Amino acid sequence: MEATVKMPEHMPRISAENRVAGYDWTAIGAELDSYGCAVLEGLLLGDECAEIARLYPYEEHFRSHVVMARHGFGKGEYRYFRYPLPDLIGGLRSALYPRLSVVANAWNARMGIDQHYPAAHADYLDLCRGAGQTRPTPLLLQYQPGDFNCLHQDLYGDLAFPIQVAVLLSEPGRDFTGGEFVLTEQRPRMQSRAEVVPLRRGDAVAFAVHNRPVQGTKGNYRVNLRHGVSRVRSGHRHTVGIIFHDAR
């Protein structure tokens, strides 16, 4: 059963901290432990989704523009936000991180990784800067018919926070068809497992970036994960990605 909480569409604007606090983080952590992903229903309201998606054509909000086909990443395009981030995205990045850092630290302990994530996102960004990672990584993705995102991992330097969040800004069945979020997991000496995550407009999915621990008969072992988006069959799809480490 997925760990989800529905925020009503008529909900007044509230702070990122308060809306993030409204989820059952014990259940979300259990979902991440079991499947490598968990859904946060209704993280953004419809008008907030539209507000973010409308930013895409305006270059002043972004530091770079990537056309996926030029790099073999798939088809479609995305833009990385520049600092300062839009208030809503920056607020969610700061509010989500402390909740997810609890899971991330537990994962590292289980995998025998000697790295502890600080409780505050600002402190983690200080570590990124010390490692030469100073460029913001939250991004806005845009797909049209025939576009897709190949399976990949968002690693931008020596430091990589092990969980990230993607928020769907378009409504499936109305704004687009196809374009499902896909997560694959490769366990040692086993075939890959695929997880297709159904989302509605405003829903977010938190998911493992690279590795996560799995309990085996001889203790914990690491599995390798990749994520992507299946082919969009009609319409247009926008997503905002919230990545917690910065890039070189």
Score class of each variant (00 low, 15 high):
95 A>Q: 04
98 P>D: 10
71 H>G: 09
110 R>K: 15
81 F>G: 00
69 A>E: 15
82 R>F: 07
81 F>L: 07
112 G>A: 13
103 V>D: 02
104 A>K: 03
83 Y>L: 12
112 G>T: 14
73 F>L: 10
89 I>N: 00
95 A>E: 02
110 R>D: 08
84 P>M: 09
96 L>M: 08
73 F>W: 06
104 A>N: 04
83 Y>E: 11
77 E>G: 08
117 Y>C: 06
93 R>V: 00
80 Y>P: 09
87 D>H: 11
74 G>H: 02
109 A>P: 07
110 R>C: 09
103 V>W: 10
107 W>Q: 08
110 R>V: 09
75 K>D: 12
79 R>D: 08
110 R>Q: 14
91 G>K: 03
100 L>V: 07
70 R>V: 08
101 S>M: 04
85 L>N: 05
104 A>T: 08
118 P>N: 10
121 H>W: 13
91 G>T: 05
120 A>I: 05
89 I>L: 13
102 V>P: 02
104 A>W: 03
76 G>Q: 09
71 H>R: 03
109 A>S: 15
87 D>R: 06
87 D>A: 12
115 Q>F: 15
117 Y>S: 01
104 A>L: 09
115 Q>Y: 15
116 H>C: 09
102 V>G: 08
119 A>Y: 03
83 Y>T: 11
90 G>D: 00
112 G>C: 13
119 A>D: 12
89 I>E: 00
109 A>Y: 08
97 Y>C: 03
110 R>A: 15
89 I>W: 00
117 Y>H: 05
90 G>Y: 00
115 Q>M: 14
97 Y>M: 04
107 W>S: 07
70 R>N: 12
86 P>E: 04
101 S>H: 04
69 A>N: 13
121 H>C: 01
69 A>P: 03
74 G>P: 04
104 A>I: 08
94 S>H: 12
115 Q>R: 15
71 H>P: 01
122 A>D: 14
106 A>E: 12
70 R>K: 15
107 W>D: 02
96 L>W: 01
92 L>Y: 05
96 L>F: 13
70 R>M: 07
83 Y>H: 15
88 L>Y: 02
92 L>P: 09
121 H>R: 04
74 G>N: 10
118 P>L: 06
85 L>K: 03
79 R>N: 12
116 H>P: 00
79 R>M: 11
85 L>E: 02
100 L>W: 05
73 F>M: 12
108 N>D: 13
114 D>Q: 14
104 A>R: 04
118 P>I: 10
75 K>N: 09
97 Y>L: 07
121 H>F: 03
121 H>E: 01
75 K>P: 02
102 V>N: 05
81 F>V: 01
73 F>I: 06
89 I>K: 00
69 A>H: 14
72 G>D: 12
100 L>S: 09
103 V>H: 06
106 A>P: 01
70 R>I: 08
